[in-house]
Amino acid sequence: MEFLGLFNYWVVIFLMMVGFYALISRGNLVKKVVGLNLFQTSVIIFYVSTGKIVGGTAPILIEDDHGAAEGAAEVLYSNPLPHVLMLTAIVVGVATMAMALALVVRIKETYGTIEDDEIQEQVLADELHEGARP
């Protein structure tokens, strides 16, 4: 079981590196945003993994026979704190993604392409053009 103890973390690292690779090796801007999204989800999975206790249950208090909530002394609950932090992270992630995609649309309108090498060519051509002008 020693192997299983770290397997979650290794898969998280794999997902993170796939996202990172998409970000740095692909020229398409939408693909870069998707890579960033993969990266972010892997961090969320990492945090939620750390909060898990094997054999535990979701952190919603279970009522006993008298209707009183049972605390952590009687029932094993997983850690609620990483869940709370990741709820915030998911929503913020979507907000940043909306912002990034809006920028991609504006870049498409301005340059007519979303491939970074073609954008760079146009920027260089523009600079040469500006330089040639008296």
Binding site: T41, I44, K52, G56, A58, S78, M86, I90
Partner: peptide, 15 residues
Amino acid sequence: VLDAVDVAFTEVAVG
């Protein structure tokens, strides 16, 4: 599976 049910339905709705 990791007991984060609130995170799960936020991920489904938002993600």
